[in-house]
Design a protein around this nucleic acid. Structure first.
Lengths: 141, 141
DNA sequence: ATAAACCCGACTAAAATAGTCAAGTATCAT
DNA sequence: ATGATACTTGACTATTTTAGTCGGGTTTAT
């Protein structure tokens, strides 16, 4: 299972973006400043988000990024997938043909990790960017 | 969030152990052979499990390890905690005083990771070693 | 006695992470 | 036109984590 800063940054940045989305393209510089994330790193992250069509870029002065879909339609799964934060509980899955740990049969805990993966993915499938923005506004009030 | 081979090995090894537990102490050598896990690595892992009183050791020839509690009473949370696989979704939690990402306030996604952590921990709290052994026997039949 | 096992601490190669850096290209405002 | 702003791309790198390895113990059944 992987879940690191890259995924967290991606989600944070998109929540930030979603809040300002209606008005203008949002520059990474602004997100960088507001969220305290390295600009160079953000560029890497947004490059991936763009390739997966989660955001669109607007080049030139006054440029930046805008959401490519409605916030409600962007699920956390999409975001984390885009930045390669696969929710993989174990290597078991990688090498299905030859079983787990190089053995011919499934390892003793194979089903467990499968279940966990489903459990976590359910969580991410339900949450949309809109939920997060909403959650955020409410808490501030 | 961390969930790597160490945690997986710990769980696998304990399921193995639990299956043979009634008869004799189980040596790490046997577990190593059956599960394809390095003996030296297993020793590190069991050292931690022993310190957290999940297993007891029996030294000398014919020695090995036995469960220190009933399989039903050993939850996955206990196992993963013991080997330092804290289910930490993010650093946010480490530095609560100064907020997230060095900012004075909670980061935009703080609540999200909190929720996820709870979600995962619920899963681990419900699963006992007995469940896993049972699951395993059933599948074989 | 000796072999089987646990016990312990230090070391290390490889991979992953979280960036940084350099050299672009596109576009807007003036 | 031209400069400033901002995206684009790819390569590089320091640090940390992971998954071990290694070398020495100590204990105990036989």
């Amino acid at each position: 299972m992987k879940l690191t800063s890259k995924g967290r940054y991606a989600v944070m940045a998109l929540v930030d973006l979603a809040k300002f989305n209606d008005i203008n393209p949002v520059s990474l510089r602004d997100i960088s400043l507001r969220q305290g994330i390295s600009l160079d790193y953000l560029e890497q992250i947004f490059s991936k988000l763009r390739k997966k069509e989660i955001v669109q870029s607007v080049r030139g002065t006054q440029g930046g990024y805008v959401l490519n879909k409605k916030a409600k339609e962007i699920k956390l799964t999409n975001i984390l997938d885009a930045v390669d934060e696969k929710v993989k509980t174990v290597q078991c899955k990688k090498e299905l043909k030859k079983g787990c740990n190089g053995k011919a049969t499934k390892c003793l805990t194979h089903n467990l990790w499968d279940e966990l993966e489903t459990h976590i993915n359910n969580f991410f499938d339900k949450k949309s960017l809109e939920d997060l923005v909403q959650d955020n506004i409410e808490r501030r009030v």
